[in-house]
């Protein structure tokens, strides 16, 4: 087999540049294998985050030829042959070194999500039906690779939005809780006010890059937007609430943690 040419971003917060590595191609390899071979030979200090190498942990997110991909799930033979392969770190987050970026933003945003709030457990356990759990299970497939956060232009291209935008990863978390058959909370105002749902312009890049093929936009973000419409923008629903004397929870109420 022929050679593969890799253009790998090397650098830290002081700047960086592409470094070229040429290695013999090997059958069945993924990009992460090639990075590991570079580490084992030419560049032992090439920084790259990874864990399971089976697409289950979501650690090795980076950008291959400019597109967010998991290094461990991108086979070399799927990339254009004969062209150098460009590997850069996730663009939306601050760089730590080489291919590793600081993803704290995502963990900060996760801390703001009010936890699941079920009713007290009945004697013989909770009952839920498969059709109900399946809705949430789709979102719980998320491996937290944060590529949806990375590709989302709301923060990728607008640093100033980071403080007030939860991002697709957390929107599916909100959606999962809002669709949980046992949850008793109402986070609709919270997701509108504090999580910045309105900033999403549904351009669907999050869905395009999701390695778990979660339909983030269609099954989580748009349903959330519609639920926010129910709560805030629908005069008929408003009238209905008035007549039936139902209330929705304020963001403050919704954010109270269980126990």
């Amino acid at each position: 087999m022929s050679d593969v040419v890799m253009h790998v971003w090397r650098g830290d917060s002081n700047g960086g540049d592409f470094e070229e590595y040429t290695l013999p191609a090997q059958e069945g390899e993924v990009v992460l294998d090639v990075i590991h071979r570079i580490q084992a030979t030419e560049a032992p200090d090439l920084a790259c985050r990874w864990n399971c190498k089976a697409g289950k942990c979501g650690s090795c997110s980076a950008e291959i030829n400019g597109k967010p991909r998991l290094l461990c799930m991108t086979r070399m033979d799927q990339l254009p042959e004969g062209e150098p392969v460009t590997v850069t770190p996730m663009r939306a987050f601050p760089i730590i070194r080489d291919l590793v970026s600081d993803v704290s933003y995502n963990y900060e945003m996760a801390r703001k999500v009010p936890a699941f709030l079920p009713p007290p457990r009945p004697e013989d356990g909770y009952r839920m039906s498969q059709i109900d759990v399946e809705r949430g299970q789709e979102f719980r497939k998320c491996i937290e690779c944060f590529m949806c956060q990375n590709v989302c232009h709301v923060i990728r291209d607008h640093e100033e939005n980071k403080g007030k935008f939860a991002g697709p990863r957390l929107f599916i978390r909100y959606a999962e809780l809002e669709m949980h058959p046992l949850d008793t909370n109402d986070r609709r105002d919270l997701v509108r006010d504090k999580a910045g749902l309105g900033m999403c312009n549904i351009t669907k890049c999050c869905t395009e890059v999701c390695p778990e093929h979660i339909k983030i936009t269609d099954n989580a973000i748009i349903p959330l937007k519609e639920r926010v419409v129910d709560a805030d923008f629908d005069p008929v629903a408003w009238l209905g609430r008035k007549i039936l004397r139902r209330t929705k929870r304020t963001p403050q109420e919704a954010s109270v943690q269980p126990e």
Partner: peptide
Amino acid sequence: VDNSETPVVLGGTRGG
């Protein structure tokens, strides 16, 4: 739970 905007300590040089 902190409902304020996240203090953006998140800035910093981007990679690439």
